[in-house]
Amino acid sequence: MKIAIASGKGGTGKTTLSTNLAALLAEKEQVVLVDLDVEEPNSGLFISGELKHTEKKYKMIPEWDPTHCNLCGICQEVCNFNAVLKMGKNIMVFPELCHGCYACSELCPKNSLPMKEREMGELKAFKKGNLSFVESKLVIGEEQAVPLIKQTIDYVDSNFSEDTIKLYDSPPGTSCPVIEATKHTDFVILITETTPFGFHDLKLAVETIRELGKDFGVVINRYGIGDDSVETYCREEGIPVIGRIPNDRAVAEIYSKGELLYPRLPFIKKELEKIAAHVADIRKELSV
């Protein structure tokens, strides 16, 4: 089963929930936690394990070879991202803007834009007991998260069995990286907090996940602060609230030391078990 943990707003507890839920589930079965927030992965701060595998990840971008180029300009016409421009007698390629679609390269009548590998990041896989952990990290300056997220998902698909529970810690927001991280999953957990920002961004996240046609539930973090707007909204929209993580100073203290919460805080373990039970029900329904 594949579960994405997403939010609209950043800092609402995606990593806290992902790491604790993964460790708890791994007490009973095989779990892989995948950090897809490739711009700044941080699940690894809470999960230790033995490094099992490292690989560099590449994307393909065109490189201009002026030898036979007749400056026809087809390349810049077919690029949807302004990543190839004809400037006077030069063709300029902007690798950060390139989406690696091959259009300019394939449609060039003179084969003057051969595709070349460009390193975009690194993937690492760790293991400790039942819990595997995979993370990818973009190289500094690389703008596009989506190709690395996609390759990381592909790695997990081909290296872990069907019956492994797969948890995907997603990037924040509601744009392309989040869509890439969630669209392949069976269930999405949206974690929020009952602040005006949290509520506002939750609604955007709900719209996004509904557009993708995904089954989802909400976890309210820092429960007890703010107001009841999130609860009221979820009730009116018929969205299940599958967990409520209380606002508690001890949570912040343990988190700040990079430790897991549930082994030391029974009230956290109780909420995680509720979330796990909900996930188990869905798993049974879908038989995945």
Partner: peptide
Amino acid sequence: EAHGAGPKTSQKLAELGAEVLITGNGPGGN
């Protein structure tokens, strides 16, 4: 244009034949 506004606008500026650009925040890297 969702992507690549900087290069595209730069190309336009080249066509206009300007030698000096006066602006506010300054162009980005591309």
